[in-house]
């Protein structure tokens, strides 16, 4: 149970690195046999230093990281911890030379910063509300709201695509703009509906042209049910128009920031 860090054959110093998933309070325990990223997957363990611990596994740095499985494992590992203990998630791809460097250059060097960030996350987790417009529904909606769009639609109908290229581009632009406006409005609706149940929120940028809503909320564990209910209600109200999903509890990716310079 107790995480130990038995050394492994670390013969070629350059071949392996220590992949860091996240930072936790020093009093956590790790289950045995947790598998990390890489192929074959490294064994996940804790490097402890003072009141902190780093969740790590050894990786082969001569091979590129970033296989889909690696990404998924990184997040799942952190998300599996989040409901039980505060965790500061690291961005994907943090590899440090040795466990000693993890202990001293990472943990010790940022001791206070990490400790106070962890304190803020105590009994809290992140939830993400993510919605995507049902294309046909949102197009119908826009055509019924925008006369020019409706007119352009008639114009391109059964017409030679090349001859109506300008009209098509204009129509598409109107739609794209209309979706952006709807996105803003619907994002506000979600924010308003959940604000009372959340400690903080961050609007994430759209990553798809049909994205309707993408907002991260930091939620106290005893308000999780309220968030779920509020999300259910929104989803029901938008049925057929927006596919809404509530993700979480997850590690608080959107609510951590360091003063550490990125270069």
């Amino acid at each position: 149970m107790a995480a130990q860090s038995e050394t492994k054959p670390e013969s070629e110093a350059q071949q392996t690195g220590i992949y860091v998933y996240g930072i936790l309070p020093g009093d956590v325990e790790l289950e045995a046999d947790v598998r990390g990223i890489g192929d074959p997957p490294g064994e996940v363990r804790l490097v402890r230093q003072g009141d902190l611990a780093a969740l790590v596994s050894e990786v082969d740095v001569s091979k590129p990281l970033g296989e889909p499985d690696d990404l998924v494992v990184h997040e799942q590992l952190l998300d599996s911890i989040a409901p039980d203990a505060p965790v500061l998630p690291l961005r994907f791809g943090a590899v440090v030379a040795s466990e000693d460097a993890v202990a001293h250059e990472l943990l010790e060097a940022h001791q206070d910063e990490f400790a106070s960030a962890l304190e803020e996350l105590e009994d809290r987790a992140e939830y993400v509300v993510r919605g995507r417009y049902v294309e046909q529904a949102v197009l119908q909606e826009i055509l019924s709201e925008n006369e020019e769009a409706a007119r352009l639609r008639e114009q391109i109908k059964d017409a030679d695509p090349d001859a109506t290229r300008d009209a098509r581009i204009r129509l598409g632009e109107i739609i794209d703009n209309a979706i952006s406006e709807k996105r803003e409005k619907d994002t506000r609706t979600v924010g308003d509906a959940l604000a009372g149940h959340a400690v903080a929120s961050v609007v994430r940028p759209a990553t798809h042209e049909l994205d309707a809503v993408h907002v991260a909320f930091l939620v106290a564990s005893d308000a999780a049910d309220e968030v779920e209910q509020a999300a259910e209600k929104l989803a029901a109200g938008w049925e057929g128009r927006v596919e809404l999903r509530l993700l979480g509890p997850m590690a608080a990716y959107d609510f951590v920031a360091t003063t550490a310079p990125e270069s």
């Binding site: 860091v20 996240g22 930072i23 990404l71 990184h74 997040e75 500061l88 998630p89 690291l90 961005r91 994907f92 943090a94 440090v96 990472l106 993400v128 997850m250 590690a251 990716y253 959107d254 951590v256 920031a257 360091t258 550490a260 990125e262």
Partner: peptide, 9 residues
């Protein structure tokens, strides 16, 4: 989630 969020060391 994990490519552009989270702590950077």
């Amino acid at each position: 989630t994990i490519l552009d969020k989270g702590l950077v060391i």
